[in-house]
Computed example of a mutant assay.
Amino acid sequence: MLLLLLSGCGTSNGKPAAQELNLVLAGMDGSDAVSFEGAAALLIGGQTVSESALYYGGKIEDHNKVSLYSLLPDEPGGTKAAALEGLNKLEQSRSATPAYYTRLEKKDGEWLMQSSSPESGAGNPLTALNPLRQLEELEQLEKQVTEETGSARGSKVLRIKLSPGEAKRQLKAQLEREMQAIRPAAGNAQDTAGQRSEVTTAMNTLWAQKEKELQQKLAQAEISSVYFLKVDTKRNLPKRLTWTRTVSHPASGDPAEVETYVTKVDFYGYH
């Protein structure tokens, strides 16, 4: 959340910050391969949900292929610190055992899963952490781009804040993808009486109920979505992408219901 207090404005070398962002994204498109390492965590009411926090890494190849793997923290309680401190601790958990793996490829404008562990992809959080997809989205989203002051020599930091409406549309699209991924089968199974399976019917009814509840809750929520993109000014390439999304429910007035999702990914080894 401290990142939200570090906003600035201005231009770089006389260029508008939005133009700088487009140049950086174009530079990323021109790279044949790059490796990355990152971390993610969900906070509810300011407290980190320990099972949500993970460290991950991977590689981007041929502009449209991404492989990701995750590591679980190997120190009990290592993810129970506050947001950014928790992420820093996760980055130090390098000796853990891989828990998930997925390989994605972009075809006809869509990111498709080519392989996954577990094989079904159920419960695999890595698809949403595809850093190339995150960068691609920044080019299309309705946003305000400014440049932070006080960046270290050889780098600059762009602050990208989505409009409230765009932040909500982005989250809605993500939730719809996730809900469709867990939607029960159409329910063609039949019993000896020729009736649809009661189990299948119950599963579909439950899914429809939860989907309706999710849409109602989202409609009442306020969403804030802010990115910080650290750029290597010498090569005009991304060095780090940090993203903070905050979901609050003003009608409830309960700060414990505020959800904050934080991700941070570092890029290296460009070629």
Rank of each mutant, 00 (worst) to 15 (best):
L175R: 02
H249Y: 15
A208M: 08
V145L: 10
S248Q: 01
L162W: 05
E119K: 14
S252M: 07
E136Q: 09
L162M: 09
Q174W: 01
V231S: 02
N130C: 01
S163N: 03
Q144M: 00
M179E: 12
T146D: 08
L229V: 07
L171A: 03
N124V: 02
T246N: 04
L129Y: 02
R159A: 06
I160N: 03
A251P: 03
T242H: 07
Q140H: 15
R133I: 01
A122L: 15
A219Q: 12
E257Y: 03
L158F: 11
R153C: 07
A202W: 05
V226I: 10
E257A: 14
L214A: 02
N130H: 03
P250W: 00
E147C: 11
M203I: 02
G187A: 10
V145T: 10
N124H: 08
A189R: 13
P250Y: 05
V247M: 08
E198L: 05
E222D: 14
L135R: 09
R153E: 15
Q140T: 15
T192K: 12
K172E: 13
A128C: 10
K230R: 15
S120V: 07
Q190H: 09
P238D: 04
R159T: 08
A202V: 02
N124P: 14
L237T: 12
L135Q: 04
Y227I: 04
T233W: 07
K234Y: 11
E148P: 12
E213W: 08
S248K: 10
L132D: 02
E136L: 07
G154I: 05
S224G: 13
S225H: 14
K210M: 04
E119N: 12
V247I: 11
K172T: 09
N188T: 15
A202S: 03
K161E: 13
S252F: 06
A256S: 15
S163A: 15
P164Y: 08
L129R: 01
G121I: 04
L158K: 02
L171D: 08
L214R: 02
L229M: 14
A251Q: 14
E257F: 01
E147R: 15
L158Y: 02
A152S: 15
T149E: 15
E257M: 10
N236Y: 10
L206P: 03
L229D: 11
K230F: 03
T127F: 09
K217G: 00
K143Y: 01
K230M: 15
T233K: 11
G121F: 08
L206I: 05
A167F: 00
I182A: 00
A186T: 14
Q215R: 07
A128W: 04
S155W: 07
T246H: 12
A208F: 03
Q190V: 10
T246I: 09
R133T: 01
A193D: 15
T205W: 09
N188K: 14
D232E: 06
A122S: 15
L132F: 14
L138F: 09
P238H: 04
